[in-house]
Simulated assay, not measured.
Amino acid sequence: MATETESQFEITAVGRLPLVVLFTLIQLLVFAAAYSIGKPTWYVYFIVGSAATTAYALDGTPFTIATATAGSLLMVVLSLPLFIFLARQTPSLIIEKALDPDVQRVLYLGVYAPLLAALLSLLGGVPLAHLLAKGFPGQPLVESLVDLPLVVPHSVAGIIILFGFGKGGAFPQLSVLGTMVGMVLALAFVSAPYAVNATREAFESIDDRLEYASRIHGANQWETFRRVTGPLAVRGMITGGLLAWARAVSEFGAVAVVAYSVSFFYPFAGTEVTAQHAPVFVYNTYLQGGLEESGAVAFLLLAVSAVIFLIVRYLIDDGTGGGMP
Results as ranks from 00 to 15, higher is better:
168 G>V: 12
268 F>Y: 15
172 P>E: 06
251 E>I: 08
35 Y>G: 02
286 Y>M: 08
51 A>S: 15
219 A>Q: 08
180 M>H: 02
298 A>K: 00
28 L>M: 14
81 P>D: 05
272 E>Y: 14
224 T>I: 04
137 P>E: 05
173 Q>V: 11
155 S>N: 03
312 V>S: 01
37 I>L: 11
161 I>G: 01
125 G>P: 07
53 T>H: 00
281 F>E: 09
74 L>S: 09
241 G>N: 06
197 N>K: 15
167 K>A: 14
324 M>G: 03
201 E>W: 00
131 L>F: 13
53 T>R: 01
26 I>G: 14
267 P>C: 11
69 T>V: 07
153 P>S: 05
300 L>Y: 04
307 V>L: 15
210 L>K: 13
3 T>P: 00
187 L>D: 02
153 P>Y: 06
38 G>I: 14
200 R>W: 06
209 R>A: 08
68 A>N: 12
193 P>A: 07
186 A>S: 13
87 A>V: 09
5 T>D: 10
177 L>D: 02
295 G>L: 06
232 L>K: 10
27 Q>E: 07
187 L>R: 03
71 G>A: 14
34 A>E: 04
313 R>A: 04
1 M>A: 08
169 G>L: 11
287 L>P: 01
39 K>M: 12
90 T>G: 01
78 L>K: 06
57 A>I: 08
209 R>S: 13
70 A>T: 09
227 R>D: 07
161 I>W: 01
147 D>L: 14
234 V>W: 15
134 K>F: 03
28 L>N: 05
85 F>P: 08
161 I>R: 01
255 V>N: 01
190 V>A: 04
236 G>K: 03
58 L>V: 08
170 A>Q: 11
39 K>C: 09
63 F>Q: 12
316 I>H: 02
237 M>G: 03
213 A>I: 03
222 W>Y: 09
47 I>W: 02
233 A>R: 03
134 K>C: 02
101 P>H: 07
170 A>C: 06
245 W>I: 04
91 P>L: 01
216 I>S: 10
155 S>W: 10
29 L>F: 15
278 A>K: 00
135 G>P: 04
320 T>Y: 00
209 R>M: 05
251 E>P: 05
114 P>S: 03
100 D>L: 05
225 F>Y: 14
25 L>M: 14
236 G>D: 06
50 S>E: 13
186 A>E: 00
229 T>C: 03
296 A>F: 02
92 S>A: 15
243 L>P: 05
63 F>A: 13
198 A>I: 07
76 V>E: 06
212 Y>C: 00
186 A>V: 05
9 F>W: 10
104 Q>D: 00
218 G>Q: 10
148 L>V: 02
47 I>Q: 15
298 A>M: 15
34 A>T: 15
146 V>A: 05
289 G>F: 10
63 F>Y: 12
154 H>D: 13
99 L>N: 14
103 V>H: 01
208 D>T: 04
37 I>P: 01
62 P>H: 11
49 G>C: 14
211 E>M: 12
296 A>L: 02
130 H>D: 03
79 S>N: 11
273 V>T: 12
118 A>M: 13
89 Q>H: 06
287 L>R: 13
227 R>Q: 11
163 F>C: 00
202 A>W: 07
242 L>Y: 04
212 Y>F: 10
